[in-house]
Structure formats: structure tokens, C-alpha cells
Amino acid sequence: MQFSKLALFAFVSAVLGQQNVLSVQDYADFQISDGVAGNALAEVAAKFPVEEFRANLAGVSADDLAILKAARQTAENAETDAGGFNEAIEAAGGKNTEEGARLQVGKIKNKVLKLELFSLLLEIEQAQGQDRTEDIADKQKKLANNIKIDEDAAGDASQSVDFQGDSAP
């Protein structure tokens, strides 16, 4: 009988008492791109228990890790895939139009979501035995840049896209 790494890790997590915190959600439920700019990082923390995970990185369950990975990938897809921000901004006539500007602010907020989840994932993997030092530094640099862009645009209207996706592993 052959077990997948995820199944084996889930079993070990259950034995060690790791609790699942997350449940699968549609992108529309975990996206943060509506509203206004300025607090994207806090909005991510309101959707995902980032600080709870960071308090015990090695103890994050395999199920939660898989959901975080899927959510991060969906956030990235919402930026680049058909129906995502890049396509919507182009269809709106670019980021210098009124609608395009709102979408661009939403895209930056989405990047904060994607990069915060990516950083968290790498930190979890590092705590669970994989060397992710260089990747963590790279993602945190990109995250800091996008947080600054979001904060510099504080109060500007932000618009999401109607992207179909979810956090199912």
C-alpha cells in the first residue's frame, strides 16, 4: 500500500494533535480587492489566521497547508489568468481610466494577499524541515513593496474581479 506525502503528513498531524483551522472557500469569499486601498495586510489577516499560524509554524496541519497553497495559487491566477485583473484592466482601457485605476488598486491588494500567503507557506515549509531561506527573503521583499504601494494609495477606491476559483487543494 502506497501513501501520498500529504496523506502521510495528515496522519502524522492527527497523531501529534494538529488541528485544522481552515476550510475551503470560493475566491469571492477570501479575496480582499473590494473597498479601498491602505489596509491590505490587515485584510489578509482578517481572512486567514496568519498570526495564529506564525505562532506555531511547525504545527500547521497538512490540510491547512494544502488550503493555503491552493488559495495562494488562486490569488495568483486571479491576477494573470483569463478573467483576472490583467485582462480586466486591459478591457477597461488600461490603468489610467477610472475603472482601470480601481482594478489596478484591487490588483495590488490581491498581490498582497498572494505574497503574504506565499511568505507564510514558505515559513511553514522552513519550520517543517525544508530550506526556504532565499525564497522567503525574495517573497518578503516583493510583499513589502506591494504593501507600500497599497499604503501609498490609502483611501483610493478598489475593485475586485469576478474570478472563479477556490482554495480547494
Rank of each mutant, 00 (worst) to 15 (best):
Q130W: 05
A157H: 02
A168D: 14
K109N: 06
G155L: 04
G129A: 09
K141I: 02
K95Q: 13
L143Q: 11
K95M: 10
A91M: 05
S160I: 01
K142N: 10
S158T: 02
D131L: 03
A144L: 09
Q164D: 13
N146W: 07
G93A: 04
E90N: 11
L121I: 14
G129L: 09
D150P: 05
L103H: 01
Q159A: 13
I149C: 01
Q164R: 07
A154Y: 05
E116S: 14
T97C: 10
A153N: 14
A157L: 12
E116Y: 01
L122Y: 12
Q140D: 11
P169L: 12
Q126E: 15
L103G: 03
E151C: 02
S158Q: 03
I124E: 08
I147S: 07
L143D: 10
L120E: 09
A137C: 03
A91E: 13
G94M: 04
E134F: 07
E123C: 03
S160Q: 03
E90I: 06
N146Q: 14
K95A: 13
R132T: 10
A91I: 00
N96T: 12
G106S: 05
E90H: 01
P169Q: 10
N145C: 00
E123W: 00
L117P: 09
L103A: 05
A127P: 05
D131I: 04
Q140H: 02
D156R: 12
K111L: 11
K148A: 15
Q164G: 07
Q104V: 00
Q164C: 00
L113A: 12
A137Q: 13
A92P: 04
A91C: 02
N145W: 04
G94T: 02
A154G: 05
T133F: 01
Q128M: 04
K107H: 07
E99W: 00
N96S: 13
I147A: 09
A144H: 08
D162A: 15
L143N: 11
Q164N: 14
A153V: 00
Q104C: 02
D150K: 03
A137W: 01
G94E: 03
I108M: 04
L120Y: 08
D152P: 05
S119G: 15
K148Y: 09
Q130E: 15
E99N: 08
Q159E: 14
Q128W: 06
Q126I: 08
L115R: 15
K142L: 15
I136W: 05
D138M: 11
A91S: 13
E90A: 15
I124S: 10
D152F: 04
A91H: 01
E123I: 04
F118R: 15
K141W: 01
A144Q: 15
Q126H: 15
L122N: 14
D156C: 00
N145G: 04
F163P: 07
D156E: 14
I147T: 06
L122D: 12
G165V: 11
A127F: 05
L115A: 07
A137R: 13
E125D: 14
D135W: 03
L113Y: 10
I147G: 06
A92V: 02
E98S: 10
